[in-house]
Write a protein that binds this DNA or RNA. Sequence first.
DNA 1: CTCATTATCTGCGCCGCGCAGGTAATCACT
DNA 2: AGTGATTACCTGCGCGGCGCAGATAATGAG
Lengths: 151, 151
Amino acid sequence: MTSLQRVHGQAVVLSQIIADKVGLSPSDLECLGFLSHGGPVTAGRLGELTGLTSGAVTRMIDRLEGRKYVRRRADPNDRRRVMVEFIPARAKELEPFYGPMGNGSDEWLAQYTEKELALFVEFFSGMFEWGREQTVRVQALPAKPKRKKKA
Amino acid sequence: MTSLQRVHGQAVVLSQIIADKVGLSPSDLECLGFLSHGGPVTAGRLGELTGLTSGAVTRMIDRLEGRKYVRRRADPNDRRRVMVEFIPARAKELEPFYGPMGNGSDEWLAQYTEKELALFVEFFSGMFEWGREQTVRVQALPAKPKRKKKA
DNA sequence: CTCATTATCTGCGCCGCGCAGGTAATCACT
DNA sequence: AGTGATTACCTGCGCGGCGCAGATAATGAG
């Protein structure tokens, strides 16, 4: 499965390239990706998704909001919360980067049968689940050998 | 294929977690991963692989060398070059993180047939190739809309 | 009304990174 | 061999994202 690792490493580099073409950080971009597909979320949830602290998330939202990529909205049910909402109009600026990917990949995926594609999806789901277990496991590890208690 | 994106995002987060457990940056870790599997490489090559500039690579090697993860070696054929070499003895410190992954994934992969696994590998190879095309395409894009000439 | 908890924001310092310039080795050409 | 261009890496500098700790506001429990 080292072939998958290569794909991953490549994806990281590609994300980085796109990020500074757009003028954002990879984290910001990943966050935008989630918002554009997943609908409005709270700031805290974004922190969980990206693995950032609350402070870092606040700053990230500041940046994205400053550039009009997202909007802060109050949650009527809990006024402590801040709902972050993607501004669809800005999606056009990301289009040149991600648009062709969608089209190109559709075309490329066409070489596989429905059955095979379903198998891939299942495979990825399993991998996601596996990844989650790994995350939990790693979180519990003793941390760095350098002096410094725990988290 | 959004399911794959989720896996990717997750992998990024996981990398980050491991990185600061070990006390390194994700870049450093990715670099180590490559060195441990791919053998000695030049500093410049590492820059290409990680997408970093020469200065950043130098600093990265400094960090890794300072913590005895790698060693600088002169290239006898071209004394300008610096070969970076992984120190296998340090691999044990990474074992707790990556070791169980290898075992766990083997076990998990066992549920698929040889044929299916071959199909996955082919799929990833194709994806890698596709990713390379995307990288080239994106590199050629007009860059950020904010004022700032070009690269 | 008071205390604890939750969700987000702010001040501070660290550190990785790009950029621009520097040094040393190598190559191309005469 | 000598001269200039190129290549490969290193160094000084400033920017910006991030974690940490504490502040603020809203909610819930009694």
